[in-house]
């Protein structure tokens, strides 16, 4: 039986939704125990949220002033210090987990299983390669600890309602001061979160300007949707980087994805292949997005989108 440690991503005050999905991945491994570790300067609120997740046995908190902001070189040695009791350490395949988990693996002298999308058994997993053009069945060494990141779009969150015990852990390791957090520039918006929203409206290069992207925002507001974009739209400066969907942006799995003026390069499609329904509006009938769209409309977006907004009234 496996004993699994899940590293909790959080922003200092709230647990990231990715953690409930990483726990779901842990549940699919034949596990006797699933613990969640929260590294923070003040872990109480985040630990409380983690303790409510179903299947979690214990929440461990490591509180140090150095943990007030996530610096992987600071966090990794602390996770390593408590990893001895576990067969697996998992984190989300978010920028937080991608930054941190390979450090933990390297300190433990193992390679990492990146982007686990399904579990075959305790040491065998499926993961995407070549932007999802292939799925590889991979096997981690049977006699060493498994360090992995979980492809969040492949899992549904575990339920809440649990009340796992919360235990504070003292870890005495020297922490480096060579990396300093300066600031976070965030396009704070009260729109739904791109990674968890049930509906996402995305715009591409065909929007042609930052001003025109307002059309996407208007449709998204009408539908209660999060806003996404193709790499081309981000590169052109129409929208900030955090809304990019695809191989090098976010991998999402909404119930409904509406791609507007997006041609559908493979690098974009890899970010949406788990969506429930894909709708595409594009004036080029040859656009590859139509090969994967459940509902396609060949039309000029500047004509179709205002009509769609009106029709949804």
């Amino acid at each position: 039986m496996s004993k699994i440690l899940v590293v909790a991503e959080h922003d200092g005050s709230a647990l990231n939704p990715s953690v409930a999905k990483a726990v779901a991945c842990a549940v699919s491994i034949d596990s006797a125990e699933i613990d969640v570790v929260v590294l923070a300067s003040d872990a109480a609120a985040v630990a409380q949220e983690a303790a409510e997740l179903e299947h979690v046995s214990r929440v461990l908190t490591i509180e140090r002033p150095e943990n007030s902001y996530a610096i992987s070189a600071v966090l990794a040695p602390q996770v390593v210090a408590i990893s001895g009791n576990y067969t697996h350490v998992l984190g989300p395949s978010s920028t937080y987990g991608k930054d941190l988990m390979p450090q933990i693996a390297a300190l433990l002298g193992v390679n990492q299983v990146s982007d686990i999308m399904s579990v075959i058994d305790s040491h065998t997993f499926k993961r995407p390669v070549y932007a999802g053009s292939g799925l590889a069945l991979v096997e981690a060494p049977a006699d060493s600890i498994v360090i992995g990141t979980v492809r969040i779009a492949s899992y549904s969150s575990v339920a809440g309602g649990n009340s796992a015990s919360i235990e504070s852990v003292d870890v005495s390791v020297d922490l480096p001061a060579h990396t300093r957090f300066i600031e976070l520039k965030s396009g704070v918006s009260d729109r739904p979160d791109l990674q968890t929203s049930a509906i996402v409206v995305s715009g591409g290069r065909a929007l042609a300007s930052e001003e025109n992207f307002d059309l996407i925002y208007k449709l998204a507001d009408k539908m209660g949707a999060a806003v996404g974009a193709s790499r081309a739209a981000v590169d052109a400066g129409y929208v900030p980087n955090e809304v990019q969907v695809g191989q090098t942006g976010k991998i999402i799995a909404p119930d409904l994805y509406i791609a507007i003026g997006i041609s559908g390069a493979i690098q974009h499609l890899t970010g949406i292949k788990d969506a429930g329904t894909i709708v595409a509006i594009n004036k080029d009938e040859e656009a590859p997005i139509f090969e994967v769209a459940d509902i396609g409309l060949v039309a000029d977006l500047f004509d179709a989108v205002p009509k769609l907004i009106e029709a949804l009234d």
């Binding site: 292939g134 799925l135 590889a136 069945l137 096997e139 894909i278 509902i295 409309l297």
Partner: peptide, 26 residues
Amino acid sequence: PAIKELTFEPPAERERGVMVDDVAGL
């Protein structure tokens, strides 16, 4: 110790859906 790649398979293909004529159809 490497993570061994055992086999590869192509991803599940999404099937091509329906094309609609206009916004009303959408």
